[in-house]
């Protein structure tokens, strides 16, 4: 069991040894720096409209050009990426925590609970992911909190299923049986014995979840259901760009490219972590 408990130092060393994880960390690190410090270096307010500088093509003064109301697109992209990332991280983490809890409980308790919970998980997983998110937005209303909630809800079944399957595998291990024999409470066993031992695959799933979560955020905002003005998010900036895409394609193209780089970084990192944390997971699907 020691093999999958976390040691930050060892993890850092392993990451440096793994090509894809290194690349992922480098990309994410660069994007994070750009997101955090970039806006303060740019002389533009992401929401500052300038009607004298409408839809300018990319140049040294505006590397990503300007949008229809003269806002600097790079400033909006960096600031928007912050919001997109924040929404995604919170959403996927919430979904991950809830899903793990549900799946672990379901797998550990078994009996009638397991088939019932899994039936619901199956149901949610049978809906196209984006369709589910779209409906949740209509029910919850538009805005940042509903997006977070929708992303969380979409991810609950994924985590629940994974947590349940790994719990089933761990459940029969001697140390869990031993804890049982010692009369420890179920809750204690789950938190102390099982959780640390299923943490690695959950962690990998989380990274991969961020990668697709940010696509969901962007997609919802792209349809106008997500993050609302004046706040930008990557999807919002792309939706703006879609409107005048024929004549001024750089807004949607460059914003999408930024989004792609972020997702690429997350995927590379996820790949690397998967190799490092649990080589056996490598052959499983990324879903």
């Amino acid at each position: 069991m020691a093999e999958s408990t976390f040691s930050p130092k060892r993890l850092a060393r392993e990451i440096l040894r793994n090509r894809s994880a290194t690349a992922g960390v480098a990309i994410i690190g660069f994007m994070a720096l750009a997101m955090i410090f970039g806006p303060s270096f740019l002389p533009y307010d992401p929401n500052g409209m300038d009607f004298m500088a409408i839809l300018e093509v990319p140049s040294w003064t505006h590397p990503f050009g300007t949008d229809a109301v003269g806002r600097d697109v790079l400033a909006r992209v960096l600031y928007g990426a912050r919001i997109s990332m924040l929404v995604t991280i919170i959403g996927v983490s919430l979904g991950g925590a809830a899903g793990t809890l549900i799946g672990m409980t379901s797998g550990f308790v078994g009996r009638w609970v397991d088939p019932v919970v899994m039936r619901f998980v199956d149901l949610l997983m049978a809906f196209p992911i984006f369709v589910l998110a779209l409906f949740l937005m209509l029910v919850l209303g538009f805005g940042i909190q509903p997006v977070i909630f929708a992303i969380a809800l979409v991810y609950v079944p994924n985590f629940a299923r994974l947590a349940r399957n790994t719990t089933l595998a761990v459940k029969e291990e001697p140390y869990v049986q031993a804890a049982r024999l010692m009369g420890q409470s179920n809750l204690r066993i789950m938190l102390r014995e099982i959780l640390p031992n299923i943490a690695a695959p959950m962690f990998v799933q989380l990274t991969v979840g961020f990668a697709f979560g940010i696509v969901i955020e962007a997609g919802l905002s792209f349809l106008g259901l997500g993050v609302q003005p004046p706040d930008p998010s990557l999807g919002v900036v792309m939706a703006d760009g879609k409107d005048y895409f024929l004549a001024h394609p750089w807004v949607i193209t460059l914003t999408g490219l930024t989004l792609m780089v972020i997702i690429l970084g997350l995927n590379l990192l996820g790949d690397g972590l998967r190799d490092i944390l649990d080589p056996r997971l490598r052959k499983r699907s990324m879903a």
Partner: peptide, 16 residues
């Protein structure tokens, strides 16, 4: 009146 139009992307303009 619309400053952006005259500078629209030549690629798309030409390709249309």
């Amino acid at each position: 009146k619309f400053s952006g139009v005259s500078r629209r992307n030549f690629l798309v303009g030409a390709a249309a």
